[in-house]
């Protein structure tokens, strides 16, 4: 059972590219709600929301990986709530959620050094499905606590003025 589970990917789009996350990491999928901004946070940390009673930060992957630095937030924008290895709940903003795909995780292509919008150290690999390539994200690496803490404090030059829910 668990083998099948870990082979299932939730795929979604960031801009024009399709990405995937292991379904076992996903806790919830919701439409973009009212987000409370955190003062002094980086551009890609939109703020915090209430996820099942927990205060969860909202990370916009599009901004984080420079796929779209001025993204829109419509009623079609989705937040994928994931739970990291160390039990933190975090919301990831994506453009739209696509299908679930079965992937044999032992048949992944290694991520190339260039060509993907997201640096290879954040990826588990590439999965070829029919005619498309799904880039599988390493969520624990992207949301590594130390890295988040380091990067969540923005540099003085990029002050941004908070305004009511983005």
């Amino acid at each position: 059972m668990s083998i099948i589970e870990s082979n299932q990917l939730l795929t979604f789009k960031l801009g024009n590219e399709t990405y995937g996350i292991q379904i076992s990491k996903v806790r919830e999928i919701l439409t973009y709600p009212t987000v409370t901004p955190i003062p002094d946070a980086s551009r890609w940390v939109k703020g915090v929301i209430n996820l099942r009673g927990e205060v969860a930060p909202v990370i916009d992957l599009r901004v984080r990986f420079n796929i779209n630095n001025d993204p829109v937030y419509t009623n079609r924008t989705i937040i994928i709530a994931v739970k990291t290895q160390d039990a933190r709940m975090i919301g990831l903003v994506v453009d739209e959620v696509s299908d679930m795909e079965n992937a044999e995780l032992d048949r992944l292509y290694p991520a190339p050094d260039m060509g993907t919008s997201i640096a290879p150290e954040y990826l588990k690999g590439l999965f070829k499905k029919e005619d498309k390539m799904i880039v599988i994200l390493d969520i624990d690496r992207i949301l590594d606590k130390e890295e988040m803490q380091k990067l969540s404090r923005q540099s003085p030059e990029t002050t941004h003025v908070l305004s009511a829910s983005a």
Binding site: P33, T34, T36, I38, P39, D40, A41, V45, G47, V48, I49, N50, G53, V55, P57, R88, I90, K145, M148, Q149, S152, R153
Partner: peptide, 22 residues
């Protein structure tokens, strides 16, 4: 858990309407 001390903010709470209050 996720942020190093945000400036001037000591914690958060869930408001009556479900949103987070700082």
């Amino acid at each position: 858990r996720n942020f190093r001390n945000a400036r001037g903010i000591g914690g958060a709470t869930v408001r009556g309407d479900g949103t987070i209050g700082l």
